[in-house]
Design a protein around this nucleic acid. Structure first.
Length: 322
DNA sequence: CATCAGGGCCCTG
DNA sequence: CAGGGCCCTGAT
């Protein structure tokens, strides 16, 4: 799909703002069929908004304390003024451009252990580049699988059902819409070697097409109500809901459960030890960062994956098994 | 070669 | 509320 119509506008995030920390998350492992692309100061992705599929390019146009983003949107049809307004709103929500992190930053200053990390990434947002449905699909292939297999499953799904968009000399992929799942049987999905997840994805997609869940409505609900709605979805349990609450709905106080593989990484990160009990990790972090627990962990987590790009971190390599 | 757990969840008893 | 089963892979 060629997106050769373009509109450009500027947006002004609330300072402080960290462009690269916001748009590039090194802990998200890249697929062969890329959903996004990044280089210092620039970012591209396919963006679904309703039934529409756009190309999105973000460029850092800020100077010092004045954050500014140049936004280019691409489409196969003429882009109307009303669409621009909707896109502005959506981008602001997904990338938390208008959020005030002062309280969190003040808390970070008091943390002698990790202040250097927080300082390095000050202004980084908990960005959600995907729609609820898209992230749900990603979360499903993460379940009960190691990173490499998750990548394989996502690649084969995107190759079969996704859409490639061409814009700004990039070729990127976008995840399909829920109704596209009607075109493929559960058995055909299984033949892609995604296992029992085929059933999850079929039923989940049906819930979306039948409007049993509405992404936008959940943005206005409290955390617990949103959680209740999410776990109603077939294939969504507490851990997947937790990821969605943080990444899609920007709730920062979701550090209530620590999975074994996370426990190992947190033990090294926070204590420099091989294994600290999950309960102790949870209690310590909650005591330190309160309602910002998950956001604080996000900073520290992304930081170590960023470091991994340049240095060999033995204990981390062992845990992620790519 | 066989066995097994994995970046959970559903279902049963 | 505990425990078995699930698809497929790579590790052992």
């Amino acid at each position: 799909m060629k997106l050769d119509r373009r509109k450009t506008f500027f947006v002004y995030p609330k300072p402080p703002f960290h462009f690269d920390g916001t748009f590039y998350k090194p802990s998200h492992f890249p697929n062969k069929l890329k959903l996004d692309d990044w280089e210092i100061g620039k970012y591209w992705q396919g963006l679904r908004l309703g039934k529409k599929l756009y190309g999105l390019k973000m460029e850092n146009a800020g100077l010092g304390l004045k954050p500014k983003l140049k936004v280019s949107v691409y489409s196969d049809k003429k882009i109307e003024a009303g669409e621009i307004e909707k896109l502005k709103k959506e981008i602001s929500w997904r990338f938390e451009l208008d959020i005030d992190l002062k309280e969190f930053n003040d808390l970070a200053k008091k943390d002698s252990q990790f202040y250097p990390v927080f300082k390095k990434w000050i202004g980084m947002r908990n960005a959600s580049q995907y729609t609820l449905y898209e992230l749900l699909i990603i979360a499903i292939v993460l379940q009960n699988a190691t990173a490499r297999r998750s990548q394989q499953m996502l690649d084969v799904l995107i190759g079969k059902l996704g859409t490639m968009v061409e814009f700004d000399k990039k070729e990127l992929w976008a995840i399909w819409l829920p109704e596209d799942m009607e075109r493929i049987s559960e058995q055909e999905l299984r033949d892609l070697k995604i296992g029992y997840r085929a059933k999850f994805i079929k039923r989940l997609s049906l819930d979306f097409t039948k409007d049993k869940i509405n992404e936008m409505n959940l943005r206005n609900l409290e955390k617990e109500s949103t959680n209740k709605e999410l776990v109603k979805l077939y294939g969504v349990g507490p851990e997947t809901a937790r990821i969605l609450l943080f990444e899609v709905y920007h709730h920062y106080d979701v550090f209530d459960h620590v999975a074994p593989w996370q426990q190992k990484i947190y033990s090294q990160l926070f204590y420099g030890k091989e294994l600290v009990s999950a309960n102790k990790i949870r209690d310590d972090i909650q005591k330190r960062y309160g309602k910002y627990s998950m956001l604080a962990v996000h900073y520290i987590w992304e930081d170590v994956f960023w470091r991994r790009k340049n240095e060999k971190i033995e204990w981390l390599e062992k845990e992620i098994r790519l």
